[in-house]
Computed example of a mutant assay.
Amino acid sequence: MSNTIEAIHLLEDKLESLISNYEFLKNENEILLHSTTKLQHQLLEREQLLVEQKRQYDLLKIAKTIDGSSTNTRDTKLKINTLIREIDKCIIQLHE
């Protein structure tokens, strides 16, 4: 009978330990999920900022080239041609 009681106490101790570990891991998982969400949000903001700054840089490059103070006239002409093609596509779609 005493072996059975010892086995039950041992089982209870192990069960309490497992429950304690489960609660700890559950809390840790919530913290990590929150942290991951926060980092993903920061990454998205940084990516948007990078895209905006690249756009501003391209516009500045075009403005400098048009102003005549840059040697990237070929790049500017290509960009202008690309913009003209995009505008033409939009006009064609509007006429359809």
Rank of each mutant, 00 (worst) to 15 (best):
L49P: 00
E96G: 10
E6L: 15
T4F: 09
L10K: 12
S2Q: 07
I5P: 01
I5Q: 12
L59C: 04
L10I: 10
L10P: 13
H9G: 07
A7S: 03
L43I: 02
V51K: 10
K61G: 02
T4G: 08
N72A: 06
L11W: 09
E47A: 02
I80W: 01
L43F: 02
K79D: 12
Q42T: 02
L83I: 08
L39W: 05
K79C: 14
K64Q: 10
T37H: 05
R74T: 14
K64A: 07
L49W: 01
E96K: 13
E16R: 14
Q93H: 13
L32A: 05
T82C: 12
E6D: 12
G68N: 00
L94F: 07
N29M: 11
M1T: 08
D67E: 08
K77T: 12
S20V: 07
Y22C: 09
I66F: 01
I8C: 01
I92C: 10
D58Q: 03
G68C: 00
E86N: 11
F24K: 14
I8N: 02
T65C: 04
L33I: 11
E16C: 13
E47H: 03
N29W: 08
K14F: 02
K26P: 08
Q48R: 04
S20C: 08
I87C: 05
I66S: 01
R85E: 06
D13M: 11
Q42M: 06
R85V: 07
D75G: 06
V51E: 02
M1R: 07
E6I: 09
E12K: 13
C90W: 15
T37C: 03
S70T: 00
I80H: 01
E23Y: 08
I62H: 00
E45N: 02
I66C: 00
N3T: 06
L44S: 04
E45R: 01
K79R: 15
H95N: 13
R55I: 07
E47G: 00
H95F: 12
N27P: 01
D88R: 02
I66E: 00
L39I: 09
L60R: 07
T4L: 06
Q42W: 03
I31L: 07
T65N: 03
K77D: 11
K61E: 02
K54C: 05
L94C: 07
R74H: 15
E52F: 02
E45Y: 04
N3Q: 12
E12V: 09
T76V: 03
D75C: 03
R85K: 12
L10D: 08
H41Y: 14
C90E: 10
H95Q: 15
R74V: 10
E16F: 15
K77H: 10
I5A: 06
R74W: 02
D13H: 12
L15H: 08
E47F: 04
R55E: 09
D88K: 04
I19V: 08
D75F: 00
I62K: 03
Q42C: 08
H9M: 15
E12P: 11
H41F: 12
S2L: 08
S70V: 00
E23N: 09
E47I: 04
L59T: 11
R46T: 01
I31Y: 06
E30I: 14
H41K: 10
S17K: 11
L33V: 10
T4P: 06
K54D: 04
L83N: 06
E86W: 11
S2A: 13
D67L: 10
M1C: 05
L60Q: 12
N3M: 12
K79M: 13
